[in-house]
Nucleic acid binder design. Sequence first.
RNA 1: CGGGGCGUGGCGCAGCCUGGUAGCGCACCUGCUUUGGGAGCAGGGGGUCGGAGGUUCGAAUCCUCUCGCCCCGACCA
Length: 563
Amino acid sequence: MRMSQLLLPTEREAPADAQALSHILGVRAGLIRQLGAGLWTWMPAGWRVHQKIEQIIREEMDSIGGQELLMPLIQPRELWKKTGRDQIDEIFSLSDRKGTELVLAMTHEEAVTFHVSQLVRSYRDLPLILYHFQLKGRDEPRPRAGVLRTREFIMKDSYSFDRDEAGLDERYALHIEAYDRIFERSGLEWYRVESDVGVMGGSGAHEYMAPCPAGENEVALAPGYAANVEVASAEPTTAVLPDRLDAPVEQATPGAKTIEQVAALLELDPSALLKSFAVVTDAGETVLAIVRGDHRVNEFKLRAALGQNFRPATDEEITDQIGPAGFIGPVGVEITVLLDDAVAGTEGGWVTGANSADAHLRGVEPGRDFEFTAADIRSVEAGDVVGGNPIRLEAAIEVGNIFKLGTRYSEPLGATFLDEDGAERPIVMGSYGIGPARIAAAAIEQNADEKGIAWPKAIAPWSVELVALGKVGSAEVAAAETLYGELRELGLEVLFDDRDAGPGEKFADAEMLGCPLRITLGKRSLESGVLEVQGRRGLVELDPIPLGPDSAELIRATLAQLP
RNA sequence: CGGGGCGUGGCGCAGCCUGGUAGCGCACCUGCUUUGGGAGCAGGGGGUCGGAGGUUCGAAUCCUCUCGCCCCGACCA
């Protein structure tokens, strides 16, 4: 590609509203442009990156027997009513001129299951893996960070269809293999972590996480362990508890409502306190969830423990049913108490709210002083231990997920088959997503420096940027033209900077765009007989390449050494 | 949905408080010079100041409403 003909809108300054590195550099390097909130155009260079990522995904999906098709973005709302997902807040709704209600698909479970329900009749038709690359529409409450969270984005989503759970396990394992290879080939640093299966149920789920500062998720990592903090479990650090007492003793704590205030007032470590969090379940029951003072309630785990969704209780409800807000605790209350495992297994004199104003209780013991059900309902903290090793927490972008759906969609949509015995059974499904745009964003975040992007070779918009210095029509530019032709002959993807511009501008643009290898050919090259070679990653000067008939071949060999 | 911020040429910004000819840098166009780290000189083009209404002799500036965008939080099947 000749740069003189390329629409590559680079910018010297960052857009004023950009925060995330991938957002700033994506715009500055001319890869993406914004059309509206969460609506992004991929400019030619950026689209090349996207397509390269798609191609890697396509090859790996095909290698596990996936079949590519394409399903519509616009879908009848009726279909979504059948699975109940038409009630989701994030769904984009529209209607046509006849008044037919339509939605923009957020994912394609409904569509693919609809087709499979019509087309698959027998166990002989299974298993099946179908996938496509298609836009998703999501009315996100808060789009952010460039292409990281948008209202419209392309996803590779695949769906597996099996006769039973064992078949699903096989298809799931195949996807793990394919996904591992996809992220490895993309050149990302990544983790496969255990993830929340959500209210919808499902028998298993993993997420692929790419650590980077702009990430919206947190992963808990230890040698041999990786999980989303939403579901991570670990052994807690030891609580610093005062001695046991024979019975709880009331202690005046005027005005001290927070853990910090109470701990400071009583000169105790926050871990000696019990934090009481009142919630109301969808069924209308008020439940007191209790964790250690230095721990935080994990809403995903709490939801799992309750078996249903919940909301925090209002101050009125707390005052009404438990005690004055800020001074509540489990002793003497009539409601269900869910006690975190980190507390349930210990002995000592805990401190908790006395359910009367300006007072706490010391020397409280679970079991002796209040009844409870134990559950793991806290979020892990850095320093907690898994398998003898302390965990650390890292911000990450979710770049892919795999999910065992079971019969969540096949049952409401009537996707069944006849087994060998002639019995009709629901198809067992899995769904598997990857966001190519997020892979691109993660690659930018993980490999950027002060000069710009440093793409992994596999997804760089071009492998080589050939920078010609000198006036248009000069001998050096003529030599660069020749070399450009030779590189293309070899099948290399070359961006040829043939613009009538100064060297500073060309070098700066090359380093911003971040092709793995930069070849410079100027007057100096003609005099010395060698090309200058720079590896973008780390901005390293590589061995010069003699200018001559073998230049292109040597450049290809040099490129092969790069990451 | 709660909190905060911002809308002035393609990008980044000043002007607004205290109403009076819309400005700066970069980018762009023409010519000449220049070509190894974002060039120099000269000339030039481009903006209903997000939109609507109001106050006023006069509004980018003051008032009201509204739309859009960003950030933090909530949310994220």
